[in-house]
Design a protein around this nucleic acid. Structure first.
Length: 448
RNA sequence: GGUCCCAUCGUCCAGAGGCCUAGGACACCGCCCUUUCAAGGCGGCGACACGGGUUCGAAUCCCGUUGGGACCGCCA
């Protein structure tokens, strides 16, 4: 038996945007294709004429690109198995339906074509994740009252149904590995019945555990974000979402939890996917997202933070990229989302935001003379405007003037940033530059 | 109701009969560093759902119970 390279597919229906569950499925398909050197096919399942729209299709494609999931064949990238939209593959559905009709395994009724579900056949398959599964054919498709329900394969409007179209498409597109959500495990026997009726070999199935909300129910709009773009707006990086999603239902043998796309591709194994449904934990997403930002080169991070600064009303375009990247570097990993990073670093781009926060009562009048003296000397006499030099200068000064680091550094942070929390105050001062520091201190009458 | 699936800390994962007095991560709590923490370091809390087997030995295998999930559309 020859081992053929996997041809996998992600087959969304354009009746909504790419949500987290879909992104998870797409991600695992992509990971497996890239890990094995196989092919990743994107197929649009637009047989629902009522609800499918071009806009949704576009947003799904955009969502996948945002996640960094590229496909080898798809609606916008024709390969030798096209078309890549089901609406363009009607002859296939007709051809195989005719074959079923001719062999008496299907029949027409009320303008639709039904596949006759046989009785007494044991349907089995070996799921790459869930293992051996078997169901009796008469249980594969039933009515609410438990009686056998023949499967509609061609709807009255002439369009194929899901369970039928997948079979025909997966077969005609040479898909040999079907990776999809666990909610489809129950559909698999029906599909296998159709494969068998047509005398076709079913592909390997690999079902992925569901992603549940905090309430342990299947993810839905109730759980907040739907589209992956909502995650972007909430401050999450593609790398963060990618990394986080990869950890739902899978983990590398090494136990490594923070990894790049390349590392994930290298480490991924379908055989180590878990079966238990996973609850989506935003705390963990926050953590992973933060770790991914920490690993980003500052100029690259700048690219994702910039729009958030702009959205806050700041004007990053008035600063050089080097200054801004350096400011982000100074932040030292503070902030879990791009929104937080943008907010926590606002004082590097504007003194106005500092003035809005500044509360004069924080600096008592008795302390003012001492502070004025110190800040005046620091800004004039500290030879080099670097964190190291400032720290040495300050330590010597407080020793000579019987003051303390706390006494002088806290008000300095307050005047410079309008915040009680920030990176090391001398690093902030160095980043702001000597002149800007003098301006801010002078504004508050803190320069002697 | 029926069918299918699942079952280790609150959450995500390790664990494929002895290495487990069950390991890591997030969260939480505490301590330390320090000019502050939203950064960094250290530590703590915390789970094999239950009951039967099998075995010298079970978190790991089998059965049952319970719990949870998914699906039962001419939606996908």
């Amino acid at each position: 038996m020859t081992i053929e390279k996997p041809r996998v597919r992600f087959a969304p229906s354009p009746t909504g945007t790419l949500h987290i569950g879909g992104a998870h499925t797409a991600l695992f398909n992509w990971l497996w294709a890239r890990h094995t050197g196989g092919t990743f096919v994107l197929r649009i399942e637009d047989t629902d004429r009522e609800r499918s729209t071009k806009e949704f299709e576009q947003s799904i494609l955009d969502g996948m690109r945002w996640m960094g999931l590229d496909w080898d064949e798809g609606p916008d990238k024709e390969g030798s198995y096209g078309p890549y939209r089901q609406s363009g593959r009607m002859e296939n559905y007709k051809k195989y339906a005719d074959q079923l009709l001719a062999s008496g395994l299907a029949y027409e009724q009320d303008g639709a074509v039904f596949f006759k579900v046989p009785e007494g056949k044991l349907i089995t398959f070996d799921d790459a994740v869930y293992g051996h599964i078997e169901v009796m054919s008469e249980k594969a498709s039933v009515n609410q009252d438990g009686t056998i329900k023949d499967i509609v394969i061609i709807k009255k409007d002439g369009m194929p149904t899901y369970n039928y179209a997948v079979v025909i498409d997966d077969h005609t597109m040479d898909i040999n590995t079907v990776i999809r959500g666990e909610d489809h495990i129950i559909n698999t026997p029906k599909q296998i019945l159709i494969y068998q009726a047509l005398g076709l070999e079913p592909p390997t199935f690999a079902h992925l555990p569901m992603i549940l909300g905090k309430d342990k129910k299947k993810l839905s709009k109730r759980h907040g974000a739907t589209s992956v773009f909502d995650y972007n707006d909430m401050g999450y990086l593609p790398d963060g979402v990618f990394n986080f999603l990869a950890l739902l239902g899978w983990s590398p043998r090494s136990g490594q939890e923070i990894f790049s796309r390349e590392e994930a591709v290298e480490l991924f194994e379908l055989s180590s996917v878990t079966k238990k449904p996973a609850v989506l934990d935003m705390d963990k997403l926050n953590f992973v997202n933060q770790e991914q930002m920490k690993r980003m080169e500052p100029h690259k991070l700048l690219g994702v933070i910039r729009p958030f600064w702009t959205k806050m009303g700041l004007k990053p375009e008035t600063f050089s990229d080097d200054y801004l990247a350096s400011a982000l570097h100074t932040m030292g990993g503070r902030g879990q989302t791009t929104i937080e990073v943008a907010e926590y670093s606002d004082y590097f781009l504007s003194f106005d935001v500092v003035r809005e926060r500044y509360d004069a009562s924080e600096i008592t009048e008795e302390k003012r003379p001492l502070l004025k003296k110190f800040y005046g000397e620091l800004t004039e006499k500290c030879a080099e405007w670097t964190p190291e030099a400032m720290e040495i200068f300050t330590k010597e000064w407080i020793a000579a003037n019987e003051s303390s680091m706390k006494e002088v550094a806290l008000p300095l942070r307050w005047a410079l940033t309008g915040r009680k929390v920030s990176p090391g105050v001398f690093e902030v001062a160095a980043q702001l530059g000597r002149e800007e520091c003098k301006n801010r201190l002078n504004y508050y009458n803190l320069l002697g």
